[in-house]
């Protein structure tokens, strides 16, 4: 009888410990309307699979040192990629043009004097003439 009581007590304590431990380990999940991620409602099974493939491509594939371009990526005009946790991710933070990468990756081609040969040379360079209007 005593043995059963002890077992019961240990069980209750274990469950309680597990419950409160998990409560501290896992923060409360954000509500659906507080998330900026996830597929829209109403996708078919095959569309959800395509969404997941795109999710991987957008968020992981290209930006990993192991399987993608990794750290050789550095944005030219947007200057908005940072190196974080061994993975280059899109960042909302702004970086000054010509700033050197913290990992000392060669970025001299990004210096301002070379920017005029960069990506916006034909699109939005200062003084570039407007395309003719209709």
């Amino acid at each position: 009888m005593v043995n059963i009581k002890i077992k019961y007590l240990v069980f209750v304590c274990s469950v309680s410990l597990l419950f409160y431990s998990c409560d501290e380990v896992f923060p409360e999940a954000p509500a659906e309307n507080e998330l900026l991620d996830g597929p829209m409602e109403g996708l078919s099974f095959s569309e959800q699979n395509r969404f997941l493939a795109g999710d991987v491509a957008f968020n992981d594939e290209i930006f990993t040192p192991e399987s993608g371009l990794g750290l050789c990526l550095w944005p030219l005009p947007v200057e908005a990629v940072i190196q974080e946790m061994g993975k280059v991710i899109l960042s909302p933070r702004l970086h000054d043009l010509g700033r050197h990468h913290p990992t000392k990756i060669q970025t001299s081609h990004l210096e301002p004097h070379n920017f005029r040969t960069g990506p916006f040379r034909d699109l939005s360079r200062r003084g570039y003439p407007l395309e003719s209007l209709l």
């Binding site: 569309e47 395509r50 493939a53 957008f58 594939e61």
Partner: peptide, 17 residues
Amino acid sequence: TIRDVVFYLRTLKAPIQ
């Protein structure tokens, strides 16, 4: 990969007020 990303962008949900 490009087309996968395009599909992802097309079907990424809109923010909810």
